[in-house]
Design a binder for these strands. Structure first.
Lengths: 113, 113
DNA sequence: CCGAATAAGTAGCGACGCTATGTATGGAGG
DNA sequence: CCTCCATACATAGCGTCGCTACTTATTCGG
């Protein structure tokens, strides 16, 4: 998948991954990989700063822990994060519907993939 | 619609608008507005540079003309542009399908909007 | 005559995903 | 034992590109 098509949609996906429960950054990367069938393989240099932004914005809350001698920072959704996620889902639907209309394309979920 | 969600998807839409026939920049802006039900109202400072990029990339070909005393630059798709458009449609389908999967969202055309 | 619509353009900003690199630990294999 | 890979987090700096703001012209309606 081309680089910057993700622009503006990454944070929503991070929130979506965290919706199912607390996870740490490295695990989120793996989870994204598997949920996307390998299509979304993000470098850690993309994900960690994004998580910091989300935390600063108050959409996720992080805490340090140690597992097998390695430190982890685990994040969970805040109430604001949950709200933001549902807003982003709505605007994703609008966005895809509008752009698909202009492109003259039938939805990707339909049959393709 | 939020600003940079368009990132990486604008040029495909411009190509799609030009697919139906030669048009000049200003008209493309109006056409995009109407095709998107007013959701995509681009400032000219976005569109003209984008058209220049597309022309430099050889995806569209422009020529000057004069209508009612005003100069216009009209663009039409090149063969490469047509090819690129169909590629971008394919990758749009893939992109929406993958991201929707991760977000856990049903298609926007379905019921919403 | 003046302002809106038509028509095209550029300069500069900011957001953000990327590459590249650095740090550190644990476990597996030779 | 030592090296390499997986795990785990982080930051610096780049490049792209849509945006704001502004400029230049012409035509037309009031």
């Amino acid at each position: 998948m081309k680089a910057d098509v993700l622009k503006g949609h990454l944070e929503g996906m991070l929130l979506a991954v965290l919706e199912t429960g607390e996870q740490h950054g490295y695990a989120i990367v793996e989870e994204l990989k598997s949920r996307s069938g390998g299509h979304i393989a993000l470098p850690t240099g993309t994900v960690y700063p994004a998580l910091h932004r989300l935390e600063t914005a108050g959409l996720i809350a992080g805490r340090w822990s140690v597992h097998g001698g390695r430190r982890r920072r685990s994040y969970e959704l805040t109430r604001a994060g949950r709200r933001s996620l549902s807003e982003q889902r709505a605007s994703w639907r609008e966005f895809t519907s509008v752009v698909s209309g202009v492109l003259g394309v039938e939805p990707g979920w339909a049959g393709t993939s």
